[in-house]
Write a protein that binds this DNA or RNA. Structure first.
Lengths: 234, 234
DNA sequence: TCCATTTTCTTTGTCGACAAAAAAAATACA
DNA sequence: TGTATTTTTTTTGTCGACAAAGAAAATGGA
């Protein structure tokens, strides 16, 4: 198994190596370029990136901290499996975070937040137009991450980011099975969300966040039997 | 500055060093034995634990991943400061997690969960009786963590654990200023929560979780001016 | 005495090497 | 041929050493 990477072993700034490996590996995992369950070899990575095992190891420790890889003591390291049994729990948390972050954005956003949010929405819209599934998933996550940032709650934001990251893998599976064709409906829903946030309409933002989340969940969750998500009424 | 630790440099199992350092350092940080902002010296720690810098470093990376320490590139590593400005956001998230985890525990708990929860409650009750503030804070966190585990949502549970950890530092400050005397009221509230969970009374569990959280927040949050917590009505 | 520049010192980031642990392969024995 | 035991291989965990990057101290000039 060869890794034809034409890997440019260029001069790197001290300390930048870890971030490089971390970011790249994270993307590869979330985009399913590294399939769940596949083994990760430190020496191979070291060779690929032209550095020693030490920075590789640090990147792996951080990825393990996020649950993206799993480490068997003294034995193999591998890409975490997608926890299908945990999907109901995942969607429950995801929808709640959709709600909460959108609601808080309506409350606490500042003028320049909207600029960033609109940028993300433009990127998402472009990805939809280009029918690029990977880009759609990533830019959709960025969009909601920007919303969360505008909500000014770092705890929700980081939790939400983690959920969105984990979700990228599941969504990839989903859109793969639907031939990379994605409803442009999400673009419209995003626009509605932006409008509600801008108008500081908290109730409407909450409702839209919840609806948007549930809409996505429903499309995916048809496969699932169990359906006892948390449903706090408004 | 000497570290008189009578450090037993005994033979350790391969791979156990990291966890040892991580656990101990985490506890020392959360119990404020290491004050926020204080520097962390890798070499000193290596000497103290009788091991090389490598496993120390790995433990520090993990702690940094949880936000408990901060690393200035190429320069110092230090215990994270408590983010007082972020406290409203923190409490907002904390109360919501109190609610959600208690509610889910009422829905999804199994018989043996209650045994564990009661154990934790007994420990908390003992700590209150002994007027041991540190133990109270730790066992209270354990109690709610057990509730969260019974809720069968790993995402909420891990997020909640992180919040409870972060909270240990704030609570320590709070109880310090109140002369380590803590209302036994929490013990009763815990009992009510257990009863609601056992009865699978979801609405009541939700209400109690919210009330319990808000009660704690109010006691601490009097100091804070801003008070625009998320308030989803039931 | 005060400030700019150079030198030393401290602490981190990276490396190559080696030992421990577990798995895989090879061997011995019935 | 099938199974238990030994040997080899693979991969991780740990170590000591060194180089880079700042900070602190020392030096020099006005």
């Amino acid at each position: 198994m060869t890794h034809d990477d034409s890997s440019q072993i260029t001069e790197r700034k001290r300390g930048s190596g870890v971030k490089l490996v971390y970011d790249l590996l994270r993307d590869e995992i979330l985009d399913l370029k590294l399939s769940p369950g596949s083994a990760i070899d430190e020496v191979q990575l070291a060779a690929r990136f032209g550095m020693s095992r030490t920075p590789i190891r640090e990147a792996l420790v951080r990825l393990a901290g996020e649950g993206l890889i799993e480490t068997l003591p003294n034995r193999s390291t591998m890409v975490s499996n997608i926890d299908f049994l945990g999907m109901p729990a995942y969607f429950d948390a995801l929808v709640l975070m959709y709600r909460v972050t959108t609601r808080l954005a309506a409350q606490h956003h500042r003028a320049d937040d909207l600029l960033l949010i609109r940028e993300r929405q433009a990127e998402f819209s472009a990805a939809v137009a280009a029918q690029d599934a990977l880009a759609m998933i990533a830019t959709n996550a960025d969009f909601h991450s920007a919303i969360a940032a505008a909500g000014r709650n770092a705890y929700y934001a980081s939790f939400f980011d983690r959920l969105l990251g984990e979700g990228r893998r599941m969504l990839r599976l989903y859109y793969q099975s639907y031939e990379d064709r994605l409803p442009a409906r999400y673009v419209d829903e995003h626009e509605e969300i932006i409008a509600a946030v801008e108008a500081r309409n908290v109730v409407e933002a909450d409702r839209l966040g919840k609806a948007h989340g549930e809409q996505i969940v429903e499309q995916i969750g048809q496969l699932l039997t169990r359906n006892d998500r948390l449903d706090i009424d408004l």
